[in-house]
């Protein structure tokens, strides 16, 4: 039955090459922790992706309750944290996941650096990875403001002051992010839009490029 359904779709859309491309790649011995325990360092990229998926899912659930305006933002987070069933878990996962994803990405970057895996022919994938790193830091910075508590507010204020002190582009960058003269309603709306739409869109595109490239080139060989 399943085989017949698969054949029906395959006859029309020719999905076998796509599926075989996803499923069919050999995992060489030197990256497999089952054979060499030290190969666990090759897990960090996969774990970064795993936590990123959790961040996307928990973030989607958070938006069911979160209200991005300065009157209700704090109250909605407080309600989510204290009243909603499992709200404390969902917010906790998003909060700690944000730190874990940075840790995992840091370790993944170090693994790639110290194994020299960014060398020819993988230069472009390294550059895309660096862009992913910046997008992740941007997600961390914008997400930090959203609970609209004192920690968030003053950290963002300081961050924007630092941006402002950059010569030439600083004031423009600050104006773009703040959306006015003060850190206020406009800032929160903009950070929300950047955190929920702009950066995740960029992140998904970059992750797609990262994965297509690693599939096209295969993983780097043993040292």
């Amino acid at each position: 039955m399943l085989q017949k359904m698969y054949d029906w779709v395959d006859e029309r859309l020719n999905i076998t090459p796509m599926w075989r491309d996803l499923a069919d790649h050999e995992v060489p011995e030197h990256v497999n922790p089952a054979h060499h325990f030290s190969a666990f360092v090759y897990c960090f990229g996969g774990l970064t992706f795993f936590i990123t998926v959790i961040q996307i899912l928990s973030g989607m659930f958070l938006t069911m309750y979160y209200v991005p305006d300065i009157i209700n933002a704090y109250e909605s987070v407080k309600y989510l944290q204290n009243e909603v069933a499992f709200g404390v878990i969902v917010r906790g996962m998003h909060h700690w996941g944000a730190s874990l994803v940075i840790v995992m990405m840091f370790l993944h970057t170090l693994r790639v650096f110290f194994t020299g895996a960014y060398k020819k022919p993988r230069e472009l994938n390294w550059v895309v990875g660096m862009l992913i790193f910046f997008v992740m830091l941007g997600l961390g910075f914008t997400g930090y403001l959203l609970p609209w508590d004192n920690t968030a507010y003053f950290a963002t204020k300081v961050g924007l002051e630092i941006a402002n002190s950059v010569p030439v582009i600083g004031p423009y960058a600050k104006a773009l992010l703040t959306g006015g003269d003060i850190v206020g309603a406009q800032t929160l709306s903009r950070f929300f839009a950047i955190h929920v739409f702009f950066l995740p869109g960029a992140l998904l595109g970059l992750l797609g490029a990262h994965f297509v490239m690693i599939r096209a080139q295969g993983i780097s060989g043993p040292l």
Binding site: P147, W148, A152, A155, V158
Partner: peptide, 27 residues
């Protein structure tokens, strides 16, 4: 996540001059 609920300080109060800001640890 279960052992350390995520922190939430008081609602943002721009007039609170005593609050010492600190960015997230990775900054």
């Amino acid at each position: 996540t279960v052992s350390h609920p995520s922190p939430l300080t008081d609602k943002a109060n721009p007039n609170d001059t005593s609050f010492v800001p600190l960015p997230d640890w990775y900054f």
